[in-house]
């Protein structure tokens, strides 16, 4: 589907998201272009996952608009896929899990199996085609989730901390896959807690804190000279709520 007209850029206009009276995402304005991997950084509770879900359309903003570059005849949701922090597999074989996704994307029946086998092979899971997906290890299931997302050949791939609870070897294989997907022309929009991973993968960085977009900069600029003081503290590994107290005068410790 990559050869169709691009659904990018993605534009968020004054996007806010509120649950009861709590505003979790506040007034975000941004335009994300194609061909750049965007990494979203920020402490827990910053709204990173919510931001991904709002972009992907799993959640609707309470205010503002999320706009793709589309005309009415092609639905942007069929040009995106998402990999979640915890892989969700249907109770069927690894191959059937991918073929199910392909079926939802109207891929003709006879093409589904070759595509699924190919996607599994690319993720080093070729031998698991007929294997029940839920019996695979956590790391294998996460690679299968990426294989499934990749098989759909999306224009945009969202990843929500895809290697959060994986060991270094599994993390490495997932990062290589993300690079390969990016090289095939798919835009990557991803959250992570791992600063090393962010440096390895990012072309540009979005820094969120308490639902606000505090900094949006090319990766090198962000990591070398972050402008925002909270982003500076975050990159130094400081805990942000302590930083806040220190910043306000008169609250320094007595020691």
């Amino acid at each position: 589907m990559n050869n169709m007209a691009s659904i990018l850029p993605l534009t968020l206009k004054d996007v806010s998201f509120q649950v009861t009276d709590k505003r979790l995402i506040k007034d975000i304005n941004i335009t994300l272009e194609a061909n750049k991997s965007t990494i979203i950084l920020g402490p827990n509770g910053a709204g990173k996952s919510l931001f991904l879900r709002l972009c992907h359309g799993l959640l609707q903003p309470t205010e503002g608009k999320v706009q793709w570059n589309t005309t009415n005849d092609h639905d942007p949701k069929f040009f995106q896929s998402m990999v979640f922090q915890r892989p969700v597999m249907l109770r069927r074989s690894a191959g059937a899990n991918i073929e199910y996704a392909l079926k939802l994307h109207d891929i003709p029946k006879e093409q589904r199996e070759p595509i699924a086998r190919d996607a599994l092979k690319r993720m080093g899971l070729g031998r698991f085609y007929g294997h029940p997906a839920r019996v695979l290890s956590f790391g294998e299931q996460q690679r299968l989730a990426i294989a499934r997302a990749w098989a759909l050949n999306p224009q945009v791939l969202f990843l929500d901390e895809p290697s959060a609870s994986l060991d270094p070897a599994a993390t490495h294989s997932i990062e290589s896959a993300i690079e390969a997907i990016r090289d095939s022309g798919t835009k990557i929009i991803m959250t992570t807690h791992d600063l090393g991973q962010a440096k390895r993968l990012a072309d540009e960085v979005l820094f969120l804190h308490r639902g606000r977009l505090l900094e949006y900069a090319p990766a090198k600029e962000f990591f070398d000279h972050p402008k925002n003081d909270l982003a500076q503290a975050f990159l130094k590994g400081e805990l942000l709520w302590w930083k806040k107290k220190e910043l306000s005068p008169g609250h320094m410790g007595s020691t």
Binding site: L58, K77, A101
Partner: peptide, 20 residues
Amino acid sequence: EEYEEQLMSLGVTKHGAALT
């Protein structure tokens, strides 16, 4: 509860989700 986000992300309809 377990499947919802993944299936919605794949673009399933409610009817399709029920059958799945």
